[in-house]
Computed example of a mutant assay.
Amino acid sequence: MMVELGKYAGTVLGAYGVTIALLLGLVWMTLRQGAKMRRRLEEQERRMGRNG
């Protein structure tokens, strides 16, 4: 089933494309930041384990 977008098809599809790209970028940034924080936490825990 294809929705008829008429003369605004380019604008609507472009908006969908930009939205999807932004959401994917946010997900990627969140995952990257989470991995970075996890590494920092593990390093801190190793240091704390050595120092008692």
Rank of each mutant, 00 (worst) to 15 (best):
M1E: 10
M1L: 05
M1Q: 11
M2G: 06
M2Y: 06
M2Q: 15
M2D: 13
V3G: 04
V3K: 08
V3L: 11
E4D: 15
E4S: 11
L5I: 07
L5W: 03
G6V: 01
G6Q: 04
K7Q: 13
G10Q: 04
G10Y: 00
T11A: 02
V12M: 01
V12P: 00
V12N: 00
G14S: 04
A15E: 04
A15V: 02
A15I: 02
A15Y: 01
A15Q: 05
A15D: 03
A15K: 03
Y16E: 05
Y16V: 13
G17T: 06
G17Y: 02
T19Q: 06
T19E: 09
I20N: 07
I20R: 13
A21G: 06
A21C: 12
A21S: 13
L22K: 07
L22T: 11
L22R: 11
L23I: 10
L23T: 05
L23Q: 05
G25H: 02
G25C: 04
L26C: 08
L26I: 14
V27A: 13
V27S: 08
W28M: 11
W28A: 15
M29F: 11
M29C: 07
L31Y: 10
L31T: 04
L31Q: 10
R32E: 14
R32C: 09
R32V: 07
Q33S: 08
Q33I: 15
G34Y: 09
G34W: 12
G34L: 13
A35H: 08
A35Y: 08
K36W: 07
K36R: 14
M37E: 06
M37F: 05
R38P: 00
R39N: 04
R39K: 09
R40I: 02
R40L: 05
L41K: 02
L41D: 03
L41N: 03
L41A: 04
E42M: 06
E42Q: 08
Q44A: 15
Q44R: 14
E45H: 13
R46T: 03
R47N: 14
R47D: 10
G49H: 09
G49Q: 14
G49S: 14
G49D: 09
N51P: 02
G52T: 04
G52E: 08
G52M: 05
G52W: 02
